[in-house]
Nucleic acid binder design. Structure first.
Lengths: 193, 193, 193, 193
DNA sequence: TATGAATGAGAATTCATTCAT
DNA sequence: GATGAATGAATTCTCATTCAT
């Protein structure tokens, strides 16, 4: 297959992702039909099925892409700074994620509470940087007796908790807005570490 | 309106709840049609719309009912015991919820990650016992300087975290099965308190 | 039957007429359900069927009532004035109708092009004043050789034409607005007479 | 798009028009379901919505087509003859329309009183022959001082009046059958001209 | 590869009508 | 007489999927 065809395929796929993302976030998943997606993507209906199995296939892959993107950005930024304590490093990392979603409410709504370390591990083949998150944690716990497993579980728990609180506070405004929840969330994470 | 008519209406509504719950948990929400629900409930199709706006209206109310039920049971059981420390009381409360959902995977799947203190507060008018949960926390923090708000946020955070971890571990088996996650979850909650 | 019951029935019937008229004119006939009407009328659903056969039964009777009302008002007003020529009298009569519907666009929309002498004749038992219209014409043609039948046909034709032009110009704004159509309509009626 | 596909689309659209026309005229519009139309047209239900928005969309377009057709036939026939006077020409034109609808009662019932010059003007892009009607009138009034606008209004008025009288006399038999109304209608039109 | 017209099963929803109270 | 809960047939409309071009 020629490179041109290859890149053309990539363009088509991207246009489906973009169109679907915009429709899912604005109209909701249940109210978005495949015909809406292809219309918005400017492709034929049949073409959709050459790239995706169905609507939920696109959705799953979008969530994976988007949440990976956020975490990768967060880890990259965190790595570029230096911190006195591991705790500060983790809080910076979490803060980045929080600030990101404060700007991207629609994306958060789509990801719902699926921002999870577990989801990302599956995608780790595509997004190598995801591993970096784990490495950060491993270094942080280097001098402790915690097992690899326990470290990973702690990481999982922190990300899950963050995702859950983000959704509640930013989307549902429960129990309070995100800026009011931040101190208690940070406090909790500090305690966990 | 006569009491007979009133009670008849209640029976109809209940039969819809039951039928919908069974279908949602076994076939999934997207695969359950309203015609399935009414067939299973043994009522006419139009009757459904007398009580609910649509499928998602039933779903929302079911989640509310079911999660309230679980938390109410948990608090009732907890209140019936005596504990040396507040921490033990909270862990018993949480443990009850965990054990409950270990048996009720389908319900957990339906509630997804919507087990939340915030969702329940809205229903508190219907389920007075929900208030008891808050009272338990208030007594536990009686001698501290924590404000009402902070207590409630902590409660919120613990329930949200529990719900999130429950779903991940029991439904997705990520990052590990629930019994392996329990110690770290309990440890975390202890630290939070 | 006691008078009180009688008047109560009349009130119910009137409330149905009013509710239906308002809904028909604002939402359209096809978009108005009987349940809308009874809700708006503040009566029970079953009650509707004690007074009317169905939606179109109400509609027919409303059109009859309303168009009779307009024509009766017009003839009454015309009779209260004196005119030099029969022609002036007829034009005044028609002008009254035109001015009336300029203010009552919604009613005109409902009556559509059913403003007709034929429709009214059927209702003449209920609205004696309708006969007055014919009498006016009969006097106007007193000294001519026109037969009763021809007079009635002319009357019919003038009212039909007026109704048709009113609807076109006021509702559809075709071929021009009503004030631009008036001169040519008056001119035509003068010629007819 | 290939010509074959294009022509196939045209066939589909035509089959919907035909099926809908037959059902509307025989069963009535309110008693005709879209499922009836597609069954009769021999197409899939979804196909209907590819071509029309809903039942009333078909109806509107049918009225336009059919009334255009009649007027076009009338003008064509009129043009093929020669007349001494403009008046005779117009009366021949109107007579053709009358005789047409005497044979086609069902179509008249469908068109109701919507036979109107205004309706046709909108469709004039599709049916160029409609312009011919106006031209006939323009020539007829060539030597008078009437403005373009006044000519068009007169034309409008005559067609509207004819349509209205046709419906009343043929469908409602009010105030008399069409053959009895013809003389007075012709007389009126002569006066108008 | 890409298309998009066609499909028809099936989903949601409405609503006139009944009838027990 | 009056009511309004219940009905379920009827209707509208959607939409994933196919397949000839």
């Amino acid at each position: 297959m020629s490179t041109k065809v290859e890149s053309n395929k990539r363009i088509k796929e991207e246009s489906i992702y973009d169109a679907a993302y915009n429709l899912f976030t604005t109209k909701g998943i249940n109210n978005t039909a495949i015909s809406d997606i292809v219309k918005s993507a400017g492709i034929g209906k049949g073409t959709f099925y050459l790239y995706f199995k169905n609507k939920y296939d696109v959705l799953d892959r979008i969530i994976l892409r988007k949440s990976s993107e956020v975490l990768c950005q967060a880890i990259e930024k965190t790595k570029s700074k230096s911190f006195d304590k591991f705790e500060d490093q983790v809080l910076y990392f979490i803060d980045y994620i929080i600030e990101y979603f404060k700007e991207e409410r629609l994306m958060l709504k789509l990801i719902h509470k699926n921002l999870s370390w577990g989801v990302l591990k599956k995608a780790s083949s595509d997004y190598d940087e995801v591993h970096e998150i784990y490495k950060m944690f491993e270094s942080g716990y280097a001098n402790t007796s915690l097992s690899r497993d326990d470290i990973e579980k702690t990481l999982f728990l922190i990300i899950d908790l963050t995702g859950s609180i983000l959704y509640s506070s930013i989307i549902l405004r429960e129990p309070d807005e995100i800026d009011k929840m931040k101190p208690i969330l940070f406090d909790t994470i500090s305690k966990i570490i």
